[in-house]
Amino acid sequence: MKNSSVQDSVKKAAVDLFASQGYATTSVQQIVEAAGVTKGAMYHYFRSKDDLLFAIYEQLLTLQSEHLAEIVDSGLPTDATLRAVCVDVIETSIDYLPEGTVFFRSVHMLAQDRQEEVTRRRRQYHDDFARIIERGQREGLYRVDVPRAVLVAHFFSDVHYLSHWYSPAGPESKGEIAAQLTDLFLVSLRSGAGQGTR
């Protein structure tokens, strides 16, 4: 088995087991048996079950951060930039829905330093996302009557809730869902949206 195959097999087995029986009650032995590898092979890439849980989510964090940087660097107008980032966040979150679901159920069980690392990485991504909104506010595109932190939380609350209702077997594709949620967010963000109403 190739190195990348070992890592992927172990992560997939861990996601399946964590989802079906929980992180706390899943043993390393069960993971390696399901993955068809030895403990030695697993420990070559993951020092512990804790390390494995972090790696499951770190893969998505890294992917989304790389995509955000590419979109921002492409030089699109602000509104098009934010739209592209929102669509990417939703589509990649759907692509990694099992991983994200498992992680958020179990993140409180991570070692403290790992929890702090996740918090730091997520805050960095949210800060980069907020800077796009700030740019749009300076350009007069987006509302300024609501704190940016609230606007960011509004978008990501929809993303984090996906696992509670979205099914790949449903009638709408991930692209349609991404477009719909992005449109709803951008409409709520427009300058003048909700202002002067009660």
Rank of each mutant, 00 (worst) to 15 (best):
G196Y: 01
N3R: 11
K49W: 05
Q59W: 08
F18G: 02
R138P: 06
E134I: 12
A19M: 07
Q137M: 13
Y142E: 14
K39Q: 09
S157H: 14
D50G: 02
Y125F: 15
I94D: 08
R120V: 04
P171W: 13
A14C: 05
Y45R: 04
R143S: 12
V87T: 10
E139M: 11
K2C: 09
L162C: 08
R131A: 14
I94Q: 02
L186W: 02
Y96A: 15
S27C: 03
K39C: 02
R47P: 00
D79T: 08
Y142D: 07
N3I: 07
D51T: 06
R114L: 12
K49Q: 01
E66R: 14
S4E: 09
A178Y: 04
V6D: 03
S4P: 01
L141T: 06
E139S: 12
V118K: 09
P147C: 06
A153P: 04
G22Y: 08
L17I: 07
L189E: 03
S157W: 12
A69W: 07
E58H: 13
T62D: 13
T62M: 07
L17C: 03
A34L: 10
A130M: 14
F46N: 00
A69N: 11
S188W: 05
L186T: 00
Y142W: 15
A24W: 05
A80N: 11
A80C: 05
